[in-house]
């Protein structure tokens, strides 16, 4: 009589049976998800079986199982893709290594001295590219000399004012050391400029 009561023509008896057996495939084949949970079957059931409760619990079980299936599929796909990616990277690296080994072998095969000469020539070329022109070098040295002169003057002024104000001996010592250091640097800059001019 439940089957006659059902407004969407389901078979409540079978659904209950498979619901208790947790047979999800059979439940879906019996269109469990078309159940609108109206409760007509339960209303007429002489045995007072809470049919709709069983169906609802089965529905949520099935949904949960489906979600878990989707999740596990995604996880598997991710894992497989990662494995593939790592394999690919490893292969590329292996290919590079092989290419380098091949190049080295070929270099070995052609005469060894030539290879060395090539390397030296290349290093020389790189060094030549780095060196600046003589005019730039001269200007740079002149700038160094003038800035050193400026620093000597500043140090002289500081030392003079300290002597006038009768500052403590430690400070005067430090200032005079700074002045002599600046004077030495000026000397060196002048020497370098002179060397360059020659």
């Amino acid at each position: 009589m439940c089957a006659e009561a059902c407004p969407v023509s389901l078979l409540p008896q079978q659904l209950l049976w498979y619901s208790q057996a947790e047979d999800h495939e059979r439940l879906e084949a019996h269109n469990l998800f078309d159940c609108i949970e109206c409760g007509a079957c339960s209303y007429v059931c002489p045995s007072n079986i809470p049919l709709v409760q069983h169906y609802r619990s089965s529905k949520s079980d099935i949904k949960k199982a489906q979600e878990e299936k989707v999740k596990s599929t995604q996880a598997r796909e991710r894992f497989e893709f990662r494995k593939q990616r790592i394999e690919l990277a490893e292969k590329e690296r292996e290919a590079k290594r092989a290419a380098r080994r091949e190049a080295a072998k070929q270099a070995q095969a052609s005469t060894g001295t030539d290879a060395m000469a090539d390397i030296v020539a290349a290093a020389q070329a790189r060094a030549a590219a780095k060196t600046t022109s003589p005019e730039q070098e001269l200007a740079k040295l002149q700038r160094a000399v003038s800035s050193a002169e400026m620093r000597v003057e500043k140090a002289q002024v500081k030392l003079d004012s300290a002597l006038e104000n009768a500052e403590p001996t430690e400070k005067i010592n430090i200032l005079s050391a700074a002045l002599s250091g600046a004077q030495q640097k000026l000397e060196k800059a002048k020497v370098r400029l002179a060397e360059h001019s020659n």
Binding site: M1, E37, C38, G39, S42, Y43, V44, P46, P50
Partner: peptide, 12 residues
Amino acid sequence: QVSSPHAHGAQN
């Protein structure tokens, strides 16, 4: 019983 129907027919 927490789901529908919240009543029952007279048949048993």
